[in-house]
Simulated assay, not measured.
Amino acid sequence: MINRIPRRRILLGGIAVLLSGCASKFRSYTGPEVTRLRLYKSERLLVLDGAEGVLRTYPVGLGFAPEGHKQFEGDGRTPEGAYLIDRRNPDSLFHLSIGISYPNEADIAFAAAQDKSPGGDIFIHGGPRRGIDPMNKRDWTAGCISVSDRQIEEVYAMVRDGTPIEIYV
């Protein structure tokens, strides 16, 4: 009986190590290259395209003021237009995130003409943290694009920096 306790602990410890390896938020992807992302704001749909067509689609949440193009810091809008995926954040407050190159030169010039900041730090990221129920409040970000944590793991693995993203009304 005494010999079983150490064996049981070793066995359970081994199982825990194996399961923790499966729980990593960093996935690998060996499929076709993602050549472009398309976001349709009115449909709340993110599309990942490859050379041969659509690879994946995801339902999304947007900024808390989803109508219209982001113009100023704090307006709660998600940008519209042509941008690039320009960075990734493995330590995001929202599980994982990939950055969008907003603001571009036109965004900066427009905001400057109004003597305001265009804002920045627009990301595609994982789901909301405590206190935000995505089922009751779909558009909850400050202008970012949200997907579930599982979905951002896929997107993070599939999309490379420099990939174009087109954001439509």
Rank of each mutant, 00 (worst) to 15 (best):
W140T: 01
Y58F: 15
G81W: 08
I124G: 07
S97I: 03
A82F: 10
M135T: 14
D115S: 08
D133F: 07
F94E: 13
I108T: 12
A142V: 00
G119E: 14
R130F: 06
P90Q: 12
P59E: 15
F72Q: 04
Y58E: 10
A82S: 14
E105N: 05
Y58Q: 10
L55E: 07
P103C: 11
S92M: 08
H95M: 06
G61C: 07
R138K: 15
F110E: 14
I98D: 03
G127L: 06
P118T: 07
L96N: 10
A112L: 05
I85S: 02
V60C: 12
G76L: 05
P128M: 02
H95V: 11
Q71S: 13
C144D: 02
P90N: 12
D133S: 13
D121R: 10
P103R: 09
Q71D: 10
V54Y: 05
A65R: 15
D139T: 00
K116F: 00
G63A: 10
A82M: 08
R129N: 12
C144F: 01
P128Y: 02
G127K: 04
P66F: 09
P66M: 11
G81C: 08
R129Y: 03
P90F: 12
Q71T: 13
A106I: 06
A142T: 00
G99N: 07
S117I: 01
A112P: 02
Y102R: 10
S92H: 15
Q71H: 14
D91L: 11
R129D: 07
A113V: 00
A82Y: 10
D115L: 06
D75R: 09
G131P: 02
R87S: 15
G143Y: 08
F123V: 02
R88T: 03
I85M: 04
S97D: 09
K137H: 02
G74P: 12
G131V: 03
P59Y: 12
E80G: 03
S117K: 12
K137N: 01
S117N: 15
I100Q: 04
I100H: 07
F110M: 09
A109V: 06
D115G: 09
G76Q: 05
V54A: 09
R129L: 13
A106R: 13
G68V: 08
E105R: 11
L93I: 02
R138W: 01
E80L: 12
G76M: 09
A111L: 04
T57R: 15
C144E: 01
A106D: 11
H69E: 14
Q114C: 05
N89F: 03
S101K: 08
I108F: 02
A65W: 04
L84C: 00
V54T: 15
P118Y: 07
A142E: 03
E67C: 02
P134F: 04
I98T: 06
R88E: 10
N89L: 04
N136Y: 05
N136W: 04
A65G: 01
A113D: 12
I108M: 11
F110N: 06
